[in-house]
């Protein structure tokens, strides 16, 4: 921890990084993969790290949460679309 972080009022406060909590819940509910849970756990880490003043840690956790939420989201879309194509092809065959 460096000197500036110990004096939070000497500079304008850093904005809270996005914690992706709601997006993680949506992925948990609609993409059926445990990736949403990884997102929720990272969201917890974003909040607690920011509150103890570990801004870089919070930013890193935010990136992780975003990464897993996006993987879950696009993974869900890909699986859904592949399934749709599969059903349509079976219906024709």
């Amino acid at each position: 921890m460096d000197f500036q972080q110990q004096q939070p009022f000497s500079q304008p406060p850093m904005p809270r990084p996005k914690n992706w909590l709601v997006e993680s819940i949506l992925v948990t509910l609609f993409c059926c993969l445990p990736l949403g849970i990884v997102g929720i756990i990272n969201a917890a880490s974003v909040n607690s790290r920011y509150d103890v003043g570990d801004y870089n840690g919070a930013l890193k956790a935010s990136e992780q949460a975003g990464k897993w939420t996006k993987i879950g989201f696009f993974g869900g879309i890909v699986v859904g679309v592949l399934y749709g194509i599969f059903v349509v092809m079976l219906g024709r065959g």
Binding site: R16, N19, L21, T28, I40, I41, A44, V46, N47, D51
Partner: peptide, 20 residues
């Protein structure tokens, strides 16, 4: 505008416990 409750340190933990 951000909903402060979502940024409370306990919120995501409670949610993770509920989901699991």
């Amino acid at each position: 505008y951000k909903w402060a409750l979502l940024y409370h340190p306990l919120t995501p933990r409670i949610m993770a416990v509920i989901v699991i």
